[in-house]
């Protein structure tokens, strides 16, 4: 605060800036540029190195394709890969939506009744800690629809972070505000809607970001277990299939797409979270100094 004031103090912009202040300013602008250029540079260097290793050692493309091969595969196989990405993406987003509804819904239910929470919370934990890879084969025995099975797998992985962080948020209400609502005779519904849910929002959004990544993992695992048939092939299946055919370039291309999807989900959820909180929450606050 005081530093900012000094910058725009009564002396105005022409006031001499001390050495420490100008150094700090320079460091900030350098960091701003480096944040983007450094990772980009590392990527280019890695691609170059990868290419050189393949060329100099004359490694055949069915063992390690060059970046150029991967790019070629990405462009020529684009129709196949794009369809696969659409399928995986659709399952991921649907599972995420279900995780939000299920996780937040359960959290509210648990919050409203301590007895229900005590009865069911341990099983939510058990469901979460059991690796989904080991549950998935069972699911596909009992669930005839591939899509439903995949959704179920992805949901099992993704709902828990939403549940646990929303539960934490619903219980993190300022105790004075809780007293105030009591004094004003607020109903249980008013307390939930006007006090607990807004208090829980930052926690919920934190859980949502984790759930986004997990639902992609869940969708990919479910695809690997389910195989294809009926619903078409997703990215995970394309990776497996390309592996059987020693089409390593396509494996890399599909892998790149999966990673891209993960990044896009995370970025979208981060942006969403920022817009929900930017007006009032500390996490969205730009520090002044």
């Amino acid at each position: 605060m005081s530093l900012t004031n000094a910058e725009h103090g009564p002396a105005g912009a022409s006031a001499p800036v001390d050495l420490e202040e100008s150094r700090r300013h320079r460091r900030q602008s350098v960091e701003k540029i480096a944040r983007w250029t450094l990772p980009a540079f590392v990527l280019l260097a890695m691609l170059f190195l990868w290419d050189r290793i393949v060329v100099w050692n004359e490694i055949p493309h069915y063992i390690l394709p060059s970046p150029g091969n991967v790019w070629e595969s990405l462009t020529t196989d684009w129709p196949i890969l794009f369809d696969a990405a659409l399928l995986t993406g659709r399952v991921t987003l649907m599972a995420l939506a279900l995780a939000v509804i299920g996780g937040a819904g359960l959290a509210i239910l648990f919050n409203q009744s301590r007895m229900i929470e005590m009865s069911f919370y341990p099983y939510a934990v058990i469901l979460q800690v059991t690796p989904v890879v080991s549950i998935a084969p069972l699911i596909f025995i009992y669930v005839s629809s591939k899509t439903v099975g995949m959704l179920l797998c992805a949901w099992i992985v993704a709902f828990f972070p939403v549940l646990s962080s929303t539960t934490l948020g619903l219980n993190s209400v300022d105790h004075n505000l809780r007293d105030l609502f009591r004094i004003y005779g607020a109903s249980r519904w008013q307390r939930l809607w006007m006090l607990q849910l807004p208090s829980a929002l930052p926690y919920f959004l934190g859980g949502l970001k984790i759930a986004g990544g997990l639902s992609l993992i869940g969708a990919v695992v479910a695809e690997l277990v389910a195989g294809t048939g009926g619903v078409g092939a997703g990215l995970a299946f394309r990776i497996q299939e390309a592996g059987y055919r020693l089409n390593i370039a396509r494996m890399f291309a599909a892998l790149g797409l999966v990673a891209m999807m993960g990044v896009m989900i995370f970025a979208a959820l981060s942006l969403f979270s920022h817009f929900m909180l930017r007006k009032w929450h500390e996490s969205a606050l730009k520090r002044e100094t």
Binding site: D174, L177, L180, L201, K279, W280
Partner: peptide, 9 residues
């Protein structure tokens, strides 16, 4: 109260 106890949202 001793704290302002406002709803930050």
């Amino acid at each position: 109260f001793q704290e302002p106890t406002l709803m930050p949202w």
